[in-house]
Design a protein around this nucleic acid. Sequence first.
DNA 1: GCTATCGATTGATAATTATCAAGAATATGG
DNA 2: CCATATTCTTGATAATTATCAATCGATAGC
Lengths: 252, 252
Amino acid sequence: MRDDEKPNLRRLPLFREMMTPTFDSLMQIAYSQSFPPHLELIRQGEYADFLHVIIEGSVELHATWNGRDSVMGIVHPVSTFILAACVYDEPYLMSARTLERSQIVMIPIADVRVALRRDSDFAMAAMRELAGGYRNFVRHAKNLKLRNSLERLAAYILHQSCRLGDVDSFVLPVEKRCLASYLGMTPENLSRSMRTLQDHGVSIQATRLTITDRARLTAVAVPDPLMDGPILKDMAASPGASKEALTERKSG
Amino acid sequence: MRDDEKPNLRRLPLFREMMTPTFDSLMQIAYSQSFPPHLELIRQGEYADFLHVIIEGSVELHATWNGRDSVMGIVHPVSTFILAACVYDEPYLMSARTLERSQIVMIPIADVRVALRRDSDFAMAAMRELAGGYRNFVRHAKNLKLRNSLERLAAYILHQSCRLGDVDSFVLPVEKRCLASYLGMTPENLSRSMRTLQDHGVSIQATRLTITDRARLTAVAVPDPLMDGPILKDMAASPGASKEALTERKSG
DNA sequence: GCTATCGATTGATAATTATCAAGAATATGG
DNA sequence: CCATATTCTTGATAATTATCAATCGATAGC
């Protein structure tokens, strides 16, 4: 892997507090690869070989059952995924596929396991990462069970706005069909819900959303940090962490 | 806490491989308490004080938003909950409440954190516990997004049967209203779904369910270990682990 | 620039799920 | 054991969400 990629990894919460020799040894084995769009990186049911770190692009985590398919999360740089499988030798519960051309660092699991044993700071960081991933999925499940689809969309828009620094306007980071599936609805209903939200403080032009009346939108979404995640106003300012929790921070 | 409770804790995956001095020091500080039914042990939004271990009874993990409420998981002995909060100093995402009279061991978080730092075997076990909890919630989310309510109920019945050693008949371990909420449906619809399943290989007498045609029920549920969890046929035989993953194994 | 392809939108309809309002069954407390 | 509360069930209805079909629009490759 290229030397200029290493600092990006080093800044990640998972690697930040790790001892330098442990980090360097991992970096020696790790390799970085560029993948074309729509490539299946991981298939659910397989066993983990690598810890993946996305450096550039975006990756979709999705699950399949009985011919149906659902997007469970979207991973943006710089962020790891499938850490859980490094710890637990069990098959992946989700598949992963690139959404666009993506640069991904892959670290063999065996080496990650060795590093976890050797470096207790790394182990603690991994624990925090796993706990964070766990909490993300608890929130996702709460969102699905407690809100209806219109409320989920409204909350997503507010969360997205907040994440980008309380901007009033932004473009969707993913295709609408992908967002729809992530939010647990059909593309048709996402389209209709977008339309409905035009009466509740959002204006939509193709993939650009603009919040015209935050109070009205908030009244629909009723944001709650225990469901929508912590407020991340400062994240855009801190390099390396800027996008790690974009939609979901996944760990395996 | 009573001495005869300690071996039960020691058998848990979380404590099994821990060094004896670390375990003993935790046990010295831990205390065991009996709680009446329907008592709120943990309120979502609060910060963690203790790692909880349920020794007897049952505890419901539920979440609240905007006046709505949903059961996110049910914890049975012997099992821990809220480990994630020990690692991550963030507020609880879920509330916990006893369903029946329950015996619960509480270990102050500060001491758990010290033990995690000191004992790398314990840290690895905690990581595995967190990874397991994470995977449980991924499965829960998959279940909600990929199956409809009838399929979820069918899968629950099969999973329950499997867990108890492939029995054909069992009584529900929780109230139907609680099960309904856990499965993401109303009590009314659970009742109707139960009725519908009578045409698909299940006979229901009050709280006792009997599988009369496993093939037909399987055709509805389409069980999948990547969604319903690993097959746990042997669990009933191994003491201490017998009930740990009853409905969900939660970690915070 | 033009066509082919894919995603997004819209309308009509159907399926799923929730709500409301009873009544039946079950548990709880004196 | 009876009275009371609570849960469970059932039916009628409404809300939500999905499916199907068609059109529109953007994008990519030629």
